[in-house]
Design a protein around this nucleic acid. Sequence first.
DNA 1: TATAAAGCCTATCCCATGCA
DNA 2: TGCATGGGATAGGCTTTATA
Length: 316
Amino acid sequence: MTNRMTSQDSKTEPRKPQLTDFSRYKVCDSYCNPPSATDTPAGGRHRLSRRQLEELDACLKAQDKKALLAIQRHRYLMTGQVQRLVFTETATSTAALRAASRCLKKLKELGLIDTLSRRIGGVRAGSGSLIWYLSHAGERLLRLHDQKEAANRRFFEPSPYFLAHTLAVAEVSIQLTELCRKYQMELAELQPEPECWRSYSERGICLSLKPDLYAITVSGEYEDRWFLEIDLDTESPTKVIEKCRRYHQYYRSGLEQKESGVFPLTVWIVPDTDRKQHLLEHIRAAFDKQPRLFAVITAEELEELIRQGGEGDMLC
DNA sequence: TATAAAGCCTATCCCATGCA
DNA sequence: TGCATGGGATAGGCTTTATA
């Protein structure tokens, strides 16, 4: 096993799958008004001065700021996802959803966030959730406290695939957060893109590894490290194998092991068992007799994998 | 195959309640 | 008294299923 710092018999408890099927998120074809490039939220508000932003910042509650930071971190979030990340203290989940809606509506009225006007389908049926993103004013407000990130992030209208993938990655982040909350585990590190990217070189050529997520979970004396790849069954197995080769190259570089002592387990999270079987066959064929760096799981199996610390028969 | 109905999910309105 | 929060009700819109 490569990703675990210490080893000991793990507890085994019956678990019921609770993960939502994020891979079923679907983007509607119908479009919408792309947001204005200028900082003019609804109502034609002019660009806010730094002083105005500071006054606004002073008026915001801790939960408002948490919601802003969550949206900034994940780029796009649905209302329900904001609720699951930020509004966890309320009596019921429906009350939490209403609280989240009120908070997001207020932040939108302040011009700090906005929604994409296209909506995606629900997990099973029903109308789609609103998808929130940080406005230019919101970015500037958060930068009042963050001197590191000086560059303006330019808004671009996401493609359907990019949006579905970004929301799926956010969903995995949230599920990891919820799993750690549920099992009193510590989520010691959660790096989205591009924070989780790694640079290395092979034969003098500079290369980069671009996982979707990097996470460290701590359970008792165990510390597990993960590279996570969210697959929506849109890429050919050849492309997946090509990416897996990069992980092997990076493994051989020894950089990660030198830094942290272990190499993270790379987990491919796929939409269904057919895709899982398909990828397993290709990865096993391509990397026979090489270190087992990968696991291929469906979204429902994430909970089991995290609790087992990457042990079991999911590796390939 | 096209259409209607049913079921499901999300957002929002409105009112009640609790607290400073 | 005003504000924040909780909860019921409802509208809108999507998927699935039944029916002509």
